[in-house]
Amino acid sequence: MALKRGRGVAAINYPTGMNLGGDPSQALVHSTPTGAFMVTLSSVDLGQGLRQVMAQICAETIGIPTEQVTIDTADTDTGPHCMGTFASRGTHRIGNAVAQAAREARQVMLEVAAEALEVDAGDLDTDGKGMIHVKGAPQKSISVFDTALAAHFKYGRSISGRGMFLVPRSFPETETGAMKPATCYAHACTVVDVEVDDETGEVDVVSVKNVFEVGRALNPSMVEQQLVGGSWMGISHALYETTEPYYPAREHGGRDFNEYLMPGPGNLAETETIVLERPAADGPYGAKGVGEMCANPQIPAVANAIFDAVGVRIDSLPITPEKILRALKAQRAAA
């Protein structure tokens, strides 16, 4: 009886947004009299930080600092329609809507600034820090603050924009399945090292090395939190979780976090995360959806590593010590 080491790999791709499209989202952007910008949505933040990413997309597009942007969301009286926060669609779909709304607002802002500076709007640029200036002549400038004030009280202009993003719905051809499920895909490859106790059937995930291709990491720290959390969930799916441990039997389902097994802090592997960026042609600043795909490759990688360690294939999830011990017993009986 011994601890056996093994290593496994898995590689995957994952579609961004609702399968077959048809999932719109809208955004509205407007400035306050002092040049702060409000983004109005009805999208839900699940804790992943949707507000922050939308603020950065809006700020980048208008050409102002992110701190100048406030996100007002998840209210159906004020926010325009959003299909919802799921299907790895938030950053891509809602981000595109915000970017479109922000482009329209920026255009009005530049028109107002052009009127104030008595120049052509096409000759103006933003410095990203709160100033609008003539290209090539930064001394000829006006602040976003003064521009917004002038828009409100002098020129009677609404610095605002509307954004809408929709991937048109695809209907699968019934006989061949010809269809357009998605417009862009994220990618991943994971290598997992495990240690399997062939006496108890317990699996210790020693290390997880994840490589993710995400299109564009709009906020790298937030991408990291999503990817690392997802990776832990993948390990949890591989080894622990189910509401019906003896499926299809209905008995023995967990009713709380004592009975429903998940890894505790001591069961979490050393996790390395590497990110590549191949921008999506239709993503906001190239971003793809990565919220779901990051939890997938660990599951088969763990299964493959267990086989590498002890030579048994467990083809049903979760891969519990009981299943491993039964397989090892059968393996010895066959030998």
Binding site: Q52, Q56, E213, L218, V228, V275, L276, R278, P279, G286
Partner: peptide, 23 residues
């Protein structure tokens, strides 16, 4: 986390003010 910028560098411009920063 490490960003490996050497892949697909020709398909991307890394000159943005707010995007690509860990605010």
């Amino acid at each position: 986390m490490e960003l490996r910028k050497n892949y697909f560098a020709d398909e991307r411009k890394d000159d943005l003010n707010e995007i690509g920063h860990s605010l």
